[in-house]
Design a protein around this nucleic acid. Structure first.
Lengths: 213, 213
DNA sequence: TGGCCTGATATACCAAGGTATAGGGTCGGC
DNA sequence: GCCGACCCTATACCTTGGTATATCAGGCCA
């Protein structure tokens, strides 16, 4: 587990991007009323310049942003590796817009006027989704860290072991003696903290998604 | 592989449910023009009573159906284990409708008037999605069939082997001699057509989704 | 009743995996 | 030049896994 797990329970945040100050404030106050921590921004740029908390969060986005559209910004975020769940709100939306947003993975698409509870529900769904994603990422980061601690040879051996090759076959493939393979293999098990071969296989598969098919 | 793989390339179908005969016919003719096989139905019931081809397909659904709404029918299909991708078309849709449909996994939600090409693209996406799903299901069916051929004891042993237990530990857990475990284990490898332990582990994990965490 | 499947067990043997100890070499940095 | 990494190998020993052959018992069904 990472250091994060040892910290106090993380407070989720809700970033709000809307160019209308009164809307920002009313959304912020609504979210505060249910115990969530709002982070209001007037533009996408402002949001990007601000350092996001290292905690589960959610983004409430007006479709019509100053400069670019919220839909474009959603794509931009995904491209930049920022995987914050997005809840769209809009005053002048249409069906194609909402479909595009949902296809791109939006949590919800709310047309004004919407019920406060609908927004709150959507935000909670988004936060929960982000929490899950972060948990998965944390676990993967751990594994990736261990994998980085392997030497190149150890990585080769790990791959072949996970592929089901016998030590003998691995030795032939890598032009090594069988004993050398055993040494590397033991290092792999120790460094990857795998308690059994099935354990190692599962770790290897998590590290190489799409390796099947 | 299943028998299906040995057959000629499967012709995808497109089921159309719309109570307006002229719309049915125009949709059907549009789809025929691009080489797809339309199956027009006037109602959800008619669709359900008809035997669907055993081939990849897609469902074009009017949101406003006689009797029930297309959205309800979409949920009903999922509940009944019919996982046909759905493309919605509608003359009187709104944003919440489209969002609900997309959340439930719809491929597309098109408001009339829409461009012919948009419908064709959506249908192709749906068919491709169904083809992938069917491929995955076929592979799983194969594995499930093999698993069914295991005796109860063999299944127990398989689970413990995949969990990383040693033969000795498995024997203790099941109150068996180690030699008996080996016999069952060998049967498992043979019946499941696993060529190595990692192979068996991956098979076991495919058969027990959600077994991790 | 006899045949078949399932399950359990044993002996014996061989192959594969794992560990410990003890070397050897290259290469890059201090 | 020494140190530390990475890499390779070997001997020796033990554990675990895999296979073959054979036996025995209960349940089920024709």
């Amino acid at each position: 587990m990472t250091d994060r797990s040892a910290m106090a329970v993380e407070t989720p945040f809700v970033a709000i991007i809307d160019d209308d100050p009164s809307i920002r404030e009313s959304l912020a106050s609504l979210l505060r009323s249910v115990g969530l921590a709002p982070l209001p921004f007037a533009s996408a740029q402002e949001f990007l310049h601000h350092r996001r908390p290292d905690a589960p969060g959610c983004l409430v986005l007006d479709v019509r942003l100053p400069g670019q559209s919220g839909l474009e910004f959603q794509r931009e975020l995904a491209g930049a590796g920022i995987h914050l769940p997005v809840v769209f709100i809009t005053g002048h939306g249409d069906i194609p817009m909402s479909v595009t947003a949902m296809k791109a993975g939006a949590v919800e698409f709310l047309a004004k006027p919407f019920r406060d509870q609908d927004l709150i529900d959507a935000v909670h769904t988004g936060i929960e989704r982000d929490r899950d994603r972060r948990r998965a990422m944390d676990a993967l980061s751990d594994l990736r860290g261990r994998f980085r601690s392997l030497t190149p040879r150890e990585r080769e051996v790990m791959g072949l072991v996970a592929a089901g090759q016998l030590n003998k076959q691995i030795a032939a493939e890598l032009r090594l003696s069988e004993i050398t393979v055993k040494v590397h293999r033991a290092s792999v098990m120790r460094k990857m903290q795998a308690k059994s071969l099935p354990d190692l296989v599962r770790i290897a598969d998590k590290l190489a998604p799409g390796g099947d098919s």
